[in-house]
Amino acid sequence: MDSRGARAPARTRLLDAAEELFYEHGIAATGVDAVLRRAQVAPATLYAHFPGKDHLVAAYLQRRHERWRLTWDAALERAGADPRARLLSVFDALEDLQRVQDAGRGCAFLAAAVEVVDPQHPAHPWLLADTGLLTGRLRSLAADAGAHDPGALAAELLLLYDGDLAARTRRSLPAPGVAAPPVRDLAAAAVDRHLTAPGP
C-alpha cells in the first residue's frame, strides 16, 4: 500500500501491514513478527501503540468497519430519496469498496469470526458492529421502502450480500460454461418482489 511508505506514521504502517496479512493469511497464522517485518517497525513501536496482538486485530477490524460504513454512507447519498436505490446501495457500496481494498477473499468479518470466538476478545465488538450495521440498516431501509415484511427482505439481501463476497473468492476459480447473473440483479428482483403489495 502507498500509505506504508517511509513517511507514513508507524501506527498506520502497522495497521496497513496487519490488514494485508490478517486478510491474506488469517489472524492465527500471522505472527506479530510478520507484521513487524512488513511494517518495518521495532517491537517496542508496536507495543507503544497496541497492548498486544489482540488489540491490533481489534484496530484492524475497527478500521475496516469504519471504511465500509463511510463507503456505504456515500452510496446512500448517491441513491438520494429513491427507496429502491437506497436498498440496493449496499451492493453499489461493495463495488466501490472493491476499488480501494481487496475483497477477493470474502468477508473479513466472517473470516475473523471463525478465529475470534471469545466474546471477551477486544475484536469481538467489531464483529458485532459489522453484523449490526448490515442487519439494522437493511431492515430500516426495507421498512422505509414500504416492504410488507422488512425483516424478511433484509435477511434475503444479507444472504445475497454474503453470497456476493463469497463469489468474489470463486472468481479466481471460474467454472467453464457457468455464468451466474450479477448479484445486484438478483437483489433488485428480491426488492421488487417484496415491495409488491401482498395479495388478499
Rank of each mutant, 00 (worst) to 15 (best):
L87P: 03
L87V: 06
L87Q: 00
L88F: 04
S89K: 11
D92H: 02
A93W: 05
L94H: 05
L94T: 05
L94R: 12
E95A: 15
D96F: 02
Q98D: 13
Q98K: 10
V100A: 03
V100T: 07
V100Y: 01
D102H: 09
D102Q: 10
G104A: 02
G104Q: 09
R105L: 15
G106P: 02
C107R: 08
A108S: 07
L110A: 13
L110P: 04
A111C: 01
A112G: 02
A113Q: 12
E115L: 04
E115C: 04
V116E: 03
V116N: 03
V116W: 01
D118T: 03
P119D: 07
H121C: 03
H121G: 00
H121E: 11
P122T: 04
W126F: 15
W126R: 15
W126D: 12
A129Q: 14
A129L: 04
T131F: 09
G132F: 09
G132E: 05
G132H: 04
L133C: 05
T135P: 02
R137W: 01
R137G: 00
R137Q: 09
L138E: 03
L138F: 06
R139S: 06
S140L: 15
A143F: 00
D144C: 03
D144T: 06
D144M: 06
A145W: 03
G146C: 12
A147V: 08
H148V: 11
H148N: 04
D149N: 15
D149K: 14
D149M: 06
D149T: 07
D149S: 15
P150R: 01
G151M: 11
G151K: 10
A152F: 12
L153A: 13
L153G: 01
E156W: 09
L158W: 11
L159W: 03
L159H: 08
L159R: 09
L159I: 06
L160E: 01
Y161T: 11
Y161P: 13
L165K: 00
L165H: 04
A166M: 15
A167P: 05
A167H: 06
A167M: 13
R168M: 07
P174Y: 07
A175C: 09
A175E: 14
A175L: 14
P176Y: 07
G177M: 09
A179G: 09
A179Q: 12
A179K: 13
A180L: 14
P181L: 09
P181A: 12
P181V: 07
P181M: 12
P182S: 05
V183A: 07
V183E: 04
V183Y: 01
